[in-house]
Computed example of a mutant assay.
Amino acid sequence: MVKARKAATDAPRRTWLRGAPPPRWVRVLPVLLLVGVGAASLSDSVPVDLGFLLGAVPPLAVLAYGPWATAFLGAATIGLLTLPFFHLNRPGNTDLFTLGFVATLSVFVSFVRGRRDEQLDLERTVAETAQRAIVPDVRRQVGPVRCASLYRAAERGTLVGGDFFDVRPGPHGVRAVLGDVQGHGLSAVATVASVLGAFREAVLDDVDAVSIAARLDRRLVVDSARTEHAELFATAVLLDFAPRGREVRVLACGHPPPVLLRGGAVSTVELDPGPPLGLGLADVMPGTSTTVSLLPGDRLILASDGVLESRDASGAFYPFVERLAGMTGVGMDELPGEIWSDLCRFAPKIQDDVTLLILALDASGPA
């Protein structure tokens, strides 16, 4: 599985200004400044007094060091400024008091920053654990079905948005779902959790994709009734892999159908989609499912609106099928990252959740 939370082609890594540890150059900078000023003061070729630069050492130390290291660098700064050996102009009392106050204040700020970072790390760990519990990583192999996926939440700093997907084994075969709830970002996480919970129960009980869709539809209707003017709905594609053989039934509920990669050809699965989930119409107008016979090497690709509705600078939609035609030779595990890289090159700014789910039957499975 290509995980959107680790690789460069997936979710963005935390940077220094977004909670990651400071880069090495930030840690080295106050030490280099201290050593550089000391070395320059011993040279007769430097006509300018560089002692004023030492005032920057304690504040720079706050960015990367703890209280004890910051205190050491502050003391070293005062010592360097006052020792006659370094030929720096002898500072007055006011200069020393000012530098001492800055160094003391820097130690205090470093202590506060360290405590804050510990709390933020704890909160981030809890948040990531909760989000991963909602949308866990899909295994590379679920029964006879091989899986590869990519999930990129639109809201920066989160792992879960308004898209959902899962692949689960059950007594009636392997079931897969990919969908998009109303809205995106953290406001849609509760709906995603509710829909996926209903799907995982349905995999154990319901015998076909139509029954699963009816259960998801009922779940959203009930949740919507609890909140005034909620109007929760979701689009989804459901796949029902037969326990034996190489067939899969596909049902679309207001969502674009999957794309089939067969050899060097790319085609969209033709079916009659039903209404979105959450409107209370799944039992009345369930849509027409279609059966796809998969040959060895065939791959089904499901994509969310974040892929299909991304636009370039001129406003043109991302030509998903046409672009896939140039990727038929890419391996299954590498394909999600390849699509994501191509999408980033096409669209200058991606504003919606991006989800890809690629499924194929194991070549060693039954003929």
Score class of each variant (00 low, 15 high):
residue 1 M to D: 06
residue 2 V to H: 12
residue 3 K to R: 12
residue 4 A to K: 12
residue 5 R to Q: 12
residue 6 K to P: 00
residue 6 K to E: 08
residue 6 K to F: 06
residue 13 R to S: 03
residue 17 L to Y: 12
residue 17 L to D: 07
residue 18 R to M: 00
residue 20 A to F: 01
residue 27 R to V: 11
residue 29 L to A: 15
residue 36 G to E: 08
residue 37 V to N: 04
residue 40 A to C: 06
residue 41 S to L: 02
residue 44 D to S: 07
residue 49 D to W: 02
residue 55 G to V: 15
residue 56 A to G: 14
residue 62 V to W: 15
residue 65 Y to L: 05
residue 69 A to R: 15
residue 69 A to F: 10
residue 76 A to R: 14
residue 79 G to I: 14
residue 82 T to D: 01
residue 88 L to D: 00
residue 89 N to T: 10
residue 90 R to P: 05
residue 92 G to A: 09
residue 98 T to W: 08
residue 100 G to E: 03
residue 104 T to M: 09
residue 105 L to V: 15
residue 112 V to Y: 11
residue 113 R to A: 13
residue 125 T to K: 13
residue 127 A to R: 15
residue 128 E to D: 02
residue 130 A to Q: 08
residue 131 Q to F: 13
residue 132 R to F: 08
residue 135 V to I: 14
residue 137 D to L: 13
residue 139 R to H: 05
residue 143 G to Y: 04
residue 145 V to G: 01
residue 146 R to E: 01
residue 158 T to R: 15
residue 159 L to H: 13
residue 161 G to P: 08
residue 163 D to S: 05
residue 166 D to R: 02
residue 168 R to T: 03
residue 171 P to Y: 11
residue 177 V to M: 07
residue 177 V to T: 12
residue 178 L to N: 02
residue 179 G to T: 02
residue 180 D to N: 08
residue 184 H to R: 11
residue 185 G to W: 13
residue 187 S to F: 08
residue 187 S to P: 13
residue 187 S to M: 07
residue 188 A to T: 08
residue 196 L to H: 06
residue 203 V to S: 00
residue 204 L to P: 02
residue 205 D to C: 07
residue 206 D to V: 11
residue 207 V to K: 10
residue 208 D to M: 05
residue 208 D to L: 09
residue 210 V to M: 02
residue 210 V to Y: 03
residue 211 S to N: 07
residue 213 A to F: 12
residue 216 L to V: 07
residue 218 R to E: 10
residue 224 S to G: 09
residue 224 S to R: 03
residue 225 A to T: 07
residue 228 E to K: 07
residue 229 H to G: 02
residue 229 H to E: 13
residue 232 L to T: 05
residue 238 L to D: 03
residue 240 D to M: 07
residue 240 D to K: 11
residue 240 D to N: 04
residue 242 A to F: 08
residue 243 P to Q: 11
residue 245 G to Q: 12
residue 247 E to Q: 12
residue 249 R to A: 14
residue 251 L to I: 08
residue 253 C to A: 13
residue 253 C to D: 02
residue 259 V to K: 09
residue 260 L to N: 04
residue 261 L to H: 07
residue 264 G to K: 15
residue 271 L to E: 05
residue 278 G to H: 12
residue 280 G to E: 01
residue 285 M to P: 01
residue 286 P to N: 12
residue 288 T to W: 00
residue 293 S to T: 14
residue 295 L to K: 11
residue 296 P to E: 01
residue 296 P to L: 01
residue 297 G to Q: 01
residue 303 A to S: 11
residue 304 S to C: 04
residue 307 V to F: 09
residue 323 R to I: 00
residue 323 R to M: 04
residue 324 L to E: 03
residue 325 A to R: 15
residue 327 M to I: 04
residue 328 T to K: 10
residue 329 G to P: 06
residue 331 G to H: 10
residue 333 D to K: 08
residue 334 E to K: 07
residue 339 I to E: 05
residue 347 A to T: 14
residue 350 I to C: 04
residue 350 I to M: 06
residue 350 I to L: 15
residue 366 P to E: 02
